[in-house]
Simulated scan of single mutants.
Amino acid sequence: MKKSLIALAVLAASGAVMAQSSVTLYGVVDLGIGRVDYNPATLGVKRPNVKTQMHGNAIVNNGASRIGFRGVEDLGGGLKAGFNYEQSIDAENGAARSGYGRQANVWVEGGFGQFKMGRAFTPSYNGMEVWELLGAPGYSVVGNTYGFVGRSSARNNSQFSYKTPVFGGFSGEIGFVTKGDYHLNGKNHKIDANLIYANGPLGVGFSYNKVSKEKANYALGAKYDFGMFTLAASYNDARNHEVTDDEGNALGVNRRSGFTIGGLVKFDNVSVALDVARDTKHQNAYDSTVKYKKYTNAVVEAKYALSKRTFLYADYLRLDSTNNYGVGLRHNF
């Protein structure tokens, strides 16, 4: 009888421990049909002999297909620990996309804020996401014109970051990558930061990032949700704008600055949006005498929600004189 009671007590205790932790499987499947004329290797030059085809991870997709796991454990006393692992997948054939790991980090948080280590979103991207009109889709006119606050990726490898608690809608985040971990021959470190105000319908974000011995990038934007209508605007100064090809290979660095303004209208489960970017400066990052053409870029998006997790979308992206468009279906699970 005593052994049975002990066994029941152990089971009850283990059940209580298990109840304090959880792991969630989640992901996105996004496929569409469209045409991509933009050639990142040559500014303003269209791709030759491009045909309309299926796309799963292109600039005409709403989001990149992926699968991930996230977990959290309640350590007690208001303290929590967790992790996030996420991998990009090719929804056209089901394969994992080599070299496109998305998240791989561990964190701890409490009343003091949150500390995180590993591959994660940059603080500057998190600041941009607060005001990006469409939620930073693949066809974001901001991201495709000025990068993610000048960077080719929205994530940093080997990043240490700290995020403050929210005080009256204000919060801040700072990230750091050491010289030994950053990719520039181990001679440069990187600092990344944001300052955010998000309270009710108003969101404002300031983003900053800098690689040592290089010029800094920054962006400031705001978005206001009136209910049926949303308005967003920003200023971006990407003084080290990284240009990469479709596989993420570096093609060069330029300076690109400009404004964006856009609006979104909702009608029940339908939304229509227009976001426009206009260059004020476009030149070689380290030789101001080498200037490129200034562009007015724009994206038009229409979405129809089939449910809370699934929607149809259509987009047209005018990017550096090229025409890119697509229609697709996205399902979140």
Rank of each mutant, 00 (worst) to 15 (best):
S124A: 13
H55N: 11
V327C: 08
G203S: 11
R255K: 13
L312R: 02
N240R: 13
T322N: 10
A193M: 14
V243P: 09
V106W: 01
A222H: 05
G78H: 03
K187R: 13
F333C: 01
V299H: 04
H241S: 02
N323W: 02
K281R: 14
A193Q: 11
E132H: 04
V265L: 14
V36G: 02
P201I: 04
G252L: 10
D275P: 04
V149Q: 06
S152D: 11
A285R: 14
L11S: 09
A302L: 09
T310F: 05
G68W: 11
N126P: 00
A305H: 14
T178Q: 12
K294V: 11
A12N: 15
N297Q: 08
K281F: 00
Y313D: 09
R47Q: 11
V204S: 05
A216W: 03
S21G: 13
M54F: 01
H183N: 12
E242A: 07
V141W: 05
S14K: 15
G44T: 02
T322L: 05
A285I: 12
K179E: 15
H189K: 10
A136Y: 03
L133P: 01
R151I: 00
V17G: 00
Y125R: 10
G186H: 11
I67R: 01
F148V: 11
F115K: 06
R330Y: 04
G186D: 11
H183Q: 12
E73V: 10
Y286I: 06
G168E: 12
G205T: 11
Y139E: 12
V28G: 00
S234N: 11
T178S: 15
